[in-house]
Protein backbone atom coordinates (compact mmCIF):
# COMPACT_ATOMS: atom_id res chain seq x y z
CA UNK A 1 0.00 0.00 0.00
CA UNK A 2 2.87 2.29 0.81
CA UNK A 3 4.73 1.46 -2.42
CA UNK A 4 1.49 1.97 -4.36
CA UNK A 5 1.15 5.39 -2.65
CA UNK A 6 -2.28 4.45 -1.34
CA UNK A 7 -1.38 5.08 2.29
CA UNK A 8 1.38 5.95 4.73
CA UNK A 9 2.43 4.47 8.03
CA UNK A 10 0.90 7.55 9.65
CA UNK A 11 -2.49 6.58 8.13
CA UNK A 12 -2.20 3.14 9.72
CA UNK A 13 -1.34 4.67 13.09
CA UNK A 14 -4.32 7.04 12.90
CA UNK A 15 -6.66 4.08 12.39
CA UNK A 16 -5.16 2.31 15.41
CA UNK A 17 -5.52 5.43 17.59
CA UNK A 18 -9.15 5.94 16.55
CA UNK A 19 -10.04 2.26 17.05
CA UNK A 20 -8.58 2.03 20.56
CA UNK A 21 -10.32 5.28 21.49
CA UNK A 22 -13.69 4.08 20.16
CA UNK A 23 -13.24 0.87 22.14
CA UNK A 24 -13.39 2.90 25.37
CA UNK A 25 -17.16 2.97 24.89
CA UNK A 26 -17.29 -0.81 24.37
CA UNK A 27 -17.37 -2.78 27.64
CA UNK A 28 -16.57 -5.99 25.74
CA UNK A 29 -13.40 -4.69 24.06
CA UNK A 30 -10.08 -6.30 24.94
CA UNK A 31 -7.66 -3.39 24.31
CA UNK A 32 -8.73 0.23 24.63
CA UNK A 33 -7.46 3.63 25.67
CA UNK A 34 -6.03 6.96 24.58
CA UNK A 35 -2.81 6.80 22.62
CA UNK A 36 -1.16 8.98 19.99
CA UNK A 37 -0.02 8.60 16.42
CA UNK A 38 3.52 9.55 17.39
CA UNK A 39 3.62 7.00 20.20
CA UNK A 40 2.55 4.25 17.80
CA UNK A 41 5.07 5.35 15.18
CA UNK A 42 7.75 4.98 17.89
CA UNK A 43 6.87 1.31 18.47
CA UNK A 44 9.21 -1.28 16.97
CA UNK A 45 8.01 -3.09 13.84
CA UNK A 46 6.41 -6.48 14.28
CA UNK A 47 6.70 -7.00 10.56
CA UNK A 48 7.52 -3.86 8.61
CA UNK A 49 5.55 -1.69 8.03
CA UNK A 50 3.20 -2.98 10.74
CA UNK A 51 3.89 -2.00 14.35
CA UNK A 52 2.38 -3.56 17.45
CA UNK A 53 -0.64 -1.28 17.72
CA UNK A 54 -1.47 -1.71 14.03
CA UNK A 55 -1.94 -5.44 14.69
CA UNK A 56 -4.79 -7.09 16.60
CA UNK A 57 -4.57 -8.62 20.06
CA UNK A 58 -5.24 -12.33 20.55
CA UNK A 59 -8.56 -12.55 22.35
CA UNK A 60 -10.93 -15.14 23.77
CA UNK A 61 -14.59 -14.50 23.05
CA UNK A 62 -17.84 -15.97 21.86
CA UNK A 63 -20.73 -14.28 20.11
CA UNK A 64 -24.30 -15.21 19.26
CA UNK A 65 -27.03 -13.47 17.31
CA UNK A 66 -30.67 -14.40 16.95
CA UNK A 67 -32.30 -14.33 13.51
CA UNK A 68 -36.06 -14.21 13.10
CA UNK A 69 -38.29 -13.94 10.06
CA UNK A 70 -40.98 -11.37 9.24
CA UNK A 71 -43.71 -10.94 11.83
CA UNK A 72 -41.82 -12.92 14.46
CA UNK A 73 -39.02 -10.33 14.39
CA UNK A 74 -41.56 -7.53 14.87
CA UNK A 75 -43.15 -9.36 17.81
CA UNK A 76 -39.82 -9.93 19.55
CA UNK A 77 -38.27 -6.47 19.31
CA UNK A 78 -39.45 -2.92 18.70
CA UNK A 79 -37.04 -2.20 15.92
CA UNK A 80 -35.53 -5.21 14.14
CA UNK A 81 -32.38 -4.78 12.05
CA UNK A 82 -33.56 -6.09 8.70
CA UNK A 83 -30.99 -7.82 6.51
CA UNK A 84 -31.65 -6.03 3.21
CA UNK A 85 -28.75 -7.53 1.34
CA UNK A 86 -25.97 -10.02 1.98
CA UNK A 87 -23.34 -11.43 -0.31
CA UNK A 88 -20.19 -13.48 0.02
CA UNK A 89 -17.35 -13.72 -2.53
CA UNK A 90 -13.93 -15.28 -2.67
CA UNK A 91 -10.63 -14.67 -4.46
CA UNK A 92 -7.82 -17.02 -5.44
CA UNK A 93 -5.79 -18.38 -2.54
CA UNK A 94 -2.37 -17.75 -4.08
CA UNK A 95 -1.21 -14.25 -3.07
CA UNK A 96 0.71 -13.83 -6.33
CA UNK A 97 -2.52 -13.98 -8.31
CA UNK A 98 -4.00 -11.00 -6.49
CA UNK A 99 -3.45 -7.24 -6.16
CA UNK A 100 -3.25 -7.14 -2.38
CA UNK A 101 -3.76 -3.37 -2.22
CA UNK A 102 -7.38 -3.78 -3.29
CA UNK A 103 -10.21 -6.21 -2.60
CA UNK A 104 -12.23 -7.07 -5.70
CA UNK A 105 -14.21 -9.73 -3.83
CA UNK A 106 -15.28 -7.24 -1.12
CA UNK A 107 -16.17 -4.75 -3.86
CA UNK A 108 -18.30 -7.32 -5.68
CA UNK A 109 -19.98 -8.47 -2.46
CA UNK A 110 -20.76 -4.83 -1.56
CA UNK A 111 -22.32 -4.25 -4.99
CA UNK A 112 -24.43 -7.40 -4.74
CA UNK A 113 -25.49 -6.56 -1.18
CA UNK A 114 -26.52 -3.07 -2.29
CA UNK A 115 -24.26 -0.99 -0.03
CA UNK A 116 -24.34 1.94 -2.46
CA UNK A 117 -28.15 2.08 -2.67
CA UNK A 118 -28.41 4.47 0.26
CA UNK A 119 -26.56 6.48 2.86
CA UNK A 120 -24.50 4.35 5.25
CA UNK A 121 -24.51 5.57 8.86
CA UNK A 122 -22.28 2.95 10.46
CA UNK A 123 -19.95 0.26 9.13
CA UNK A 124 -18.31 -2.50 11.12
CA UNK A 125 -15.38 -3.75 9.05
CA UNK A 126 -13.48 -6.91 9.90
CA UNK A 127 -10.01 -5.42 9.51
CA UNK A 128 -7.67 -7.01 12.05
CA UNK A 129 -4.68 -5.12 10.60
CA UNK A 130 -4.94 -1.35 10.34
CA UNK A 131 -4.16 -1.07 6.63
CA UNK A 132 -7.06 -3.42 5.79
CA UNK A 133 -9.55 -0.76 6.86
CA UNK A 134 -8.29 1.49 4.03
CA UNK A 135 -8.63 -1.33 1.47
CA UNK A 136 -12.14 -2.14 2.68
CA UNK A 137 -13.35 1.46 2.84
CA UNK A 138 -12.39 1.82 -0.82
CA UNK A 139 -13.89 -1.55 -1.82
CA UNK A 140 -17.19 -0.80 -0.08
CA UNK A 141 -17.26 2.79 -1.32
CA UNK A 142 -17.51 4.25 2.19
CA UNK A 143 -16.89 7.99 2.48
CA UNK A 144 -15.41 9.96 5.38
CA UNK A 145 -18.92 10.61 6.74
CA UNK A 146 -19.38 6.93 7.66
CA UNK A 147 -18.75 5.99 11.28
CA UNK A 148 -16.36 3.05 10.87
CA UNK A 149 -15.89 0.53 13.68
CA UNK A 150 -17.48 2.42 16.58
CA UNK A 151 -16.94 -0.78 18.60
CA UNK A 152 -13.19 -0.45 18.18
CA UNK A 153 -13.17 -3.23 15.61
CA UNK A 154 -10.90 -6.23 15.44
CA UNK A 155 -7.94 -4.02 16.42
CA UNK A 156 -9.47 -3.80 19.88
CA UNK A 157 -10.68 -7.37 20.28
CA UNK A 158 -9.75 -10.16 17.91
CA UNK A 159 -11.18 -13.53 18.71
CA UNK A 160 -10.40 -14.69 15.14
CA UNK A 161 -13.31 -16.85 14.00
CA UNK A 162 -15.86 -14.94 16.06
CA UNK A 163 -14.65 -11.49 15.01
CA UNK A 164 -16.84 -11.56 11.90
CA UNK A 165 -20.03 -12.43 13.76
CA UNK A 166 -19.19 -9.71 16.28
CA UNK A 167 -19.00 -7.19 13.40
CA UNK A 168 -22.44 -8.36 12.29
CA UNK A 169 -23.81 -8.03 15.83
CA UNK A 170 -22.24 -4.61 16.42
CA UNK A 171 -23.70 -3.25 13.18
CA UNK A 172 -27.13 -4.74 13.93
CA UNK A 173 -27.16 -3.47 17.52
CA UNK A 174 -26.81 0.11 16.27
CA UNK A 175 -29.89 -0.31 14.13
CA UNK A 176 -31.76 -2.08 16.96
CA UNK A 177 -30.96 0.80 19.33
CA UNK A 178 -32.01 3.44 16.82
CA UNK A 179 -28.54 5.04 16.64
CA UNK A 180 -28.33 4.14 12.96
CA UNK A 181 -30.89 3.69 10.20
CA UNK A 182 -28.58 1.89 7.82
CA UNK A 183 -25.52 -0.13 8.82
CA UNK A 184 -23.02 -2.27 6.96
CA UNK A 185 -21.38 -5.39 8.38
CA UNK A 186 -18.30 -6.90 6.81
CA UNK A 187 -16.48 -10.13 7.66
CA UNK A 188 -13.46 -11.81 6.15
CA UNK A 189 -11.57 -15.10 6.14
CA UNK A 190 -8.34 -16.34 4.66
CA UNK A 191 -4.96 -14.69 4.19
CA UNK A 192 -5.03 -11.03 3.07
CA UNK A 193 -8.82 -10.75 2.81
CA UNK A 194 -9.32 -13.80 0.55
CA UNK A 195 -13.03 -14.19 1.32
CA UNK A 196 -15.39 -11.35 2.12
CA UNK A 197 -18.99 -11.12 3.21
CA UNK A 198 -20.93 -7.85 3.19
CA UNK A 199 -24.38 -7.30 4.67
CA UNK A 200 -26.67 -4.27 4.72
CA UNK A 201 -28.87 -3.84 7.81
CA UNK A 202 -31.73 -1.36 8.00
CA UNK A 203 -34.41 -0.19 10.39
CA UNK A 204 -37.97 0.15 9.07
Amino acid sequence: MIDARKATERDFAEIAVRSRKSAMDNPNAHIKGETSVDAILDEPYISSPLRKSMCPPMSDAAAAIVLAAGDTANELVKRPAWIRGMDHRTEPHALGQRDLTSSPSAKLAAEKAGVGKGKVDVAELHAPFAHQEIILREALGLGDDVDVNPSGGALSANSLMTAGLIRFGEAASRVLSGEADRAVAHTTSGACLQQNLVAVLEGE
Partner: peptide, 14 residues
Protein backbone atom coordinates in the same frame (compact mmCIF):
# COMPACT_ATOMS: atom_id res chain seq x y z
CA UNK B 1 -9.48 -21.44 1.14
CA UNK B 2 -6.75 -23.38 -0.65
CA UNK B 3 -9.17 -25.32 -2.87
CA UNK B 4 -10.91 -22.14 -4.10
CA UNK B 5 -8.45 -21.98 -7.00
CA UNK B 6 -9.00 -25.58 -8.13
CA UNK B 7 -12.77 -25.12 -8.02
CA UNK B 8 -12.92 -21.94 -10.07
CA UNK B 9 -14.38 -20.11 -7.10
CA UNK B 10 -12.78 -16.69 -7.68
CA UNK B 11 -15.54 -14.11 -7.73
CA UNK B 12 -18.09 -16.60 -6.36
CA UNK B 13 -19.22 -17.62 -2.92
CA UNK B 14 -17.62 -20.76 -1.51
Amino acid sequence: LWLSDALGAAGKPI
